[in-house]
Design a protein around this nucleic acid. Structure first.
Length: 182
DNA sequence: CACTGGATTAGCT
DNA sequence: GCTAATCCAGTGC
């Protein structure tokens, strides 16, 4: 297993701060950069350039009108990253509710697009150093849940690689959907 | 410049 | 389970 899967597993149970809201990360996916056809960094382009740089920086991309947040994990030139797919809101829940509109609390940050919306993360946060106390940064570990692994959601290539990791029986984890053409 | 295809989501059957 | 909305990065000409 590549190092990025270890980084991914380590992120579950840690805090992610986003513009006044704090979430406990409950679901992530590992992307293996230059070795992983499912990764945006499989091809080096202006968009994926950030992932070739130093670790612990934020990679934000837009998809279907939503934002998705990733932690660049390194090593440099490997272009590995971890997609943050879901979390449980622990602080700033009123702000999160306002950003998300009428949904159940356990669904406020369920799914990558919903999580960035609840945490106010946009392309403006691209490149943020996640170890500094900026508007977006990684906090401490608050628990060590039992982890479950499975295939990544919605990817067409490498669709069977089990690099999605989530906290067992956690209601904030998103549903699995296989790519229609995988 | 035109075309393709998503690391998605909500809403409907 | 299925589909539309949606919009931009990447690609090729």
């Amino acid at each position: 297993m590549p190092e990025v899967t270890e980084r991914a597993r380590d992120l579950v149970g840690r805090l992610l701060h986003g513009h006044g809201v704090v979430a406990r990360i409950t679901e992530v996916e590992a992307y293996g950069g230059i070795e992983d056809p499912a990764s945006h960094a499989f091809v080096r382009t202006p968009r994926s350039e950030i992932m070739y740089g130093p670790p612990w920086r934020l990679y934000v991309y837009r998809i279907h009108g939503h934002h998705a947040a990733n932690v660049v994990t390194g090593p440099t030139e490997q272009a590995a990253a971890v997609l943050i797919r879901a979390g449980e809101i622990l602080e700033g829940i009123e702000v999160a509710r306002e950003r998300r509109g009428p949904v159940a609390d356990h669904a406020l940050a369920r799914g990558p697009g919903n999580l960035t919306k609840a945490l106010g993360i946009t392309s403006l946060d691209l490149g943020t150093d996640l170890l500094d106390p900026e508007p977006v940064f990684l906090g401490e570990r608050v628990d060590r849940p039992t982890l479950v692994a499975g295939p990544r959601v919605g990817v067409r290539r490498n669709a069977d690689v089990p690099w999605r990791f989530w906290a067992e029986d956690d209601p904030t984890v998103s549903a699995y959907r296989r790519h229609p053409r995988a």
